[in-house]
Design a protein around this nucleic acid. Structure first.
Lengths: 255, 255
DNA sequence: CTAGCCTAAATGTCCATACCTTTTTGTCGA
DNA sequence: TCGACAAAAAGGTATGGACATTTAGGCTAG
């Protein structure tokens, strides 16, 4: 027994035992040694193999289950369902509904609209020319009217949409989109760029918030006649990432 | 000791013990009996209170931690960080991007289209009349062409869209929507009802799948000129739940 | 041939116990 | 006063056992 401890068979003795075992098992999964669809060895067998107790094996298997590798069924066994980590696929199932609630059932309150002149930096950001007249719109997204503030948002609108700006002032509603329909039927969205920013200290004070409000979420979409839906997400303000995604209407392959 | 077992103090003896305990503790947290910021009783104390072992208490506390109620530190204790369950809000941030990948980057392959006559049950489901002619369309959603099958889907289409059915046969693509544009500009979606079902054994065999394939995801949407987007989700086949959601174009409140 | 029962196998739940590691706190001595 | 050290407290890891519950599959009786 003592020799099994001194022996650094699979891994150097860094972490707890169940972690080392979980790494070994993960390797076997990603390498395909335990193919998807098959049953893994039973807890007892693994315990024997690693010369440990069932408890330790269970701790390791818990990780594999939580990361989407395996599915465990009483009376059956441990079935491999994926050879790659954490199919967030399935992990996200639990929150699929709520996710869209965030996107849709949140509440957007416009704080101000302001006429601005693009500087070089801003021009780069919004895709305009320095010196052009634009509008800046700022607002706060809430969980619900009077609820919890989620994020602070700044949007930019070209000056040629000036006639739409009054519609925004004082707007409060679950969603925010500014569309214009042209005579040729095309629908154009006025808002060119949306940024989620750290909540300005001034606003924070007004709202009575703790400093450094964090995350944000924003969904923007526009619909056009051509059956294309574009949704863009602004992510965590810290990294300023913007995910953009196209949902194309399925074209019949036949025909 | 024996009396504590017979005594149904907190809850009737339905589930496993750690679940009942976790519910009791959750109540105490949401009710504020354990205020945020404070330290909860230690494992030993809780074990004594519930007359159980430390193991069982740990299982209960594990749940509380995973749901964002508490934070545990070796050498310190169990600190309450929230009196409400973990705003799935923030939990889901990590998967917002992937969520849409599921909806959009997955691949839908139609298996068959079949002309059927509604029976009473089906009529109720799809909102038609018993005896009407409809079409049943079945398909499988994949992670990618040739990838992993996710779920089995059945859709129902009224008979009056018969002329669109040929477009579906053999269709393979990332998305599936069947729209018809009327002369008045309205866009109507043919598919009236989508169900995600357990993968039929026959299909499973054809695809070489293990028995009991599980979860599913499906996004359906339709676009109309009126700027309304409707997305419906089918959930886990076991509970047959369907979540439906409307995104209304924001109407200017002023004016 | 089929329906139902039975059983074996696998995971799920639970206990008592022990020791380890981290953190806090208290004490003692320089 | 301050630092080092020791002790206590708390959760983390681990063992070994026991029984419960679920499932698949085989067997038997009809």
């Amino acid at each position: 027994m003592a020799d099994t401890i001194t022996e650094p068979a699979e891994n150097p003795g860094d972490g707890p035992r169940y972690m080392r075992i979980q790494k070994v098992l993960e390797d076997r999964l990603t390498s395909g040694l335990y193919p998807a669809g098959s049953l893994m060895p039973t807890e007892i067998e693994l315990a024997a193999e690693f010369n440990t107790s069932r408890f330790t094996i269970r701790e390791a298997l818990r990780y594999l289950r939580e990361h989407g590798y395996v599915e465990r069924r009483q009376g059956v066994g441990t079935r491999v369902i994926s050879n790659s980590p954490h199919s967030t696929f399935f992990k996200s199932f639990g929150s699929l509904e709520e996710l869209f609630q965030i996107a849709v059932e949140t509440y957007y309150v416009i704080l101000y609209t302001k006429r601005i002149v693009l500087d070089a930096e801003l021009a780069e950001l919004v895709g305009g020319l320095a010196g052009e007249e634009w509008f800046e719109v700022a607002g706060v997204r809430w969980t619900k009217p009077g609820g919890t503030p989620i994020c602070y948002i700044q949007s930019y609108i070209p000056g040629r949409f000036e006639h739409l700006i009054p519609l925004l002032e004082g707007h409060q509603g679950p969603f925010f989109a500014l569309l214009e329909r042209h005579s040729d039927g095309m629908i154009e969205e006025a808002v060119q760029e949306i940024r989620a920013l750290p909540m300005p200290a001034e606003i924070e004070r007004q709202l009575g918030l703790a400093k450094g409000s964090w995350a944000l979420q924003l969904l923007r979409r526009y619909l056009t006649d051509s059956g294309v839906l574009i949704a863009s997400f602004n992510w965590h303000p810290a990294d300023q990432m913007v995910y953009m995604m196209h949902i194309q209407r399925a074209k019949p392959t036949a025909e």
